[in-house]
Amino acid sequence: MIQILAFYLFAAVVVASAAMTILARNPVHSVLWLILAFFNAAGLMVIAGAEFIAMLLVIVYVGAVAVLFLFVVMMLNIDFAELRAGVMRYAAIGVALAVALAAEIVIAVGAWSAGGLELGRRIAPIDESVPNIEAVGQLLYTRYLFVFEAAGLVLLVAMIGAIVLTHRQRSDVRPQNISRQINRRSKDATRNMNPAVGQGVEL
């Protein structure tokens, strides 16, 4: 009973906040609604027993992607009123896309109920008693360790590439040197003087 209540609560909030994401006039509000939608989708995943995906949604989508969106929206000076003006012009394409997506959902459900996908030969059948975070971890760090480590190398290459292509040494800036700041002591910065009367100011 409580699960059904929770499901309807999360589902209703997801739908409502998704609608608000595209209806809100202020793009920053849109992103905030999107974050709310992500949180509630995570709740739905927990109810479905996929706690790993729920965590991913919260950590990756809310923690990284949505914040990135927020940064982009706030940093780019986009005139949303102008963008909105074109909405009616492309309405036909939008409707066509919506119909195509809906048809795909219907076909996918049809194909699913018809069966035929042969998953019996998969090498990692699901054990119901193991929580799926543990199951993913067990595979990731034993059987698939090799590709997991290699994926780490791919990220390293991405990082090196981003730095190689964008970083440049500039001579006209004075960067902050933290270790110099910390090493500076009061005796380096102030002098204790005892000037005679009338000679206190050096001009």
């Binding site: 090799f146 791919v154 090196i160 590439g161």
Partner: peptide
Amino acid sequence: DLMSLYVGLELQSLAAYV
């Protein structure tokens, strides 16, 4: 395995793009 194939390919390609 298709997975090591793909990860290896991406590692090679990504470095090549840079």
